[in-house]
Amino acid sequence: MSFGSVALSVIVGRARAARRLNTLTCTGEGGYPQELVPYADNVITQVATGLFGVREETIQYAPVVELKYAQGAKPGLGGHLLGDKVTSAVAALRETVVGNALFSPFPFHSVYSVEDNKKHIDWVKEMNPRALVSVKVSTPTDVDMVAVGSYHAGAHIIHFDGSYGGTGAAPDIAKKNIAMPIEYAIPKVHRFLTEEGVRDQVCLIASGGIRNAMDVAKAIALGADGVVIGTAELVALECIRCGNCESGRGCARGIATTDAELGCMVDEAWAEQRIVNMYTAWRKQWCELLRQYGLRSIRELVGRSDLLVHLDYLEEEERARYKSSPVEHRVL
């Protein structure tokens, strides 16, 4: 979610919320607006295939630098920002031409292989030795190999983006149809890295269609260390999921827009508070869940897939013993 795809106030609101919650948000691929600099300690700089707005300076700001190779919603398709949304402010930050669609190519032209990936990671470390390097990939069938390859290339964080994410701007034909759903990818990678003996040395982050507190808990129980939330935060800002994200003035709530007029519908402070509210509410649910399981920290939940059941795989009678409400999520 870059400057260009969503309004500046949304980006800054998210960064402010990240600071309050002691977590991180990401620039996306649209450059690093000056307004984010005060929150730099909580902002991940994304280096994506178009390299829009990426400068040495913006890499040096960041505690985490994310190399985005693909997006789960549209793997192999690169990124696009359609002409409508390339307003003069967007074009200025990205140093491009107003009104012309912007393409992020697929793949990274300087990275065609795992040893190029190592070189790329080394490059980021050379410019900013204190940064953690995150590698964002989608979930192909050999996602486990990609993960272990990235680990050996020196990545600190491996971020998998499954196929169920993406805003309305991702092509329908790609969403849910190319990459693997994240719930298949997480255990595959978790298990493989555990077998390889390197699971403890790398941080696994999952994203792509994670909608609520229980989705987060499930992702973690399947083997992720943490998650990245995109659309749910926008829903907290009253996104109505109409799917008109790609057009310049299509967003009914002024979230996914850079239009001068629509872009002021969201206020930074309000956005910050809404997002903080959402995560605080989620936290309550997680605490409840952990209490039920007798766990002291959400870290203890990582990889506890034994605590999950797949209702679809159960006989009807057995299924009836489970209630789906998160509050009373226990065997009766």
Partner: peptide
């Protein structure tokens, strides 16, 4: 020099639902 390409300028046609 560049020419303005229809695919680059403006919004895409609505994708199928």
């Amino acid at each position: 020099q560049a020419i303005t390409l229809a695919v680059l300028a403006g919004a895409k046609p609505r994708s199928e639902h």
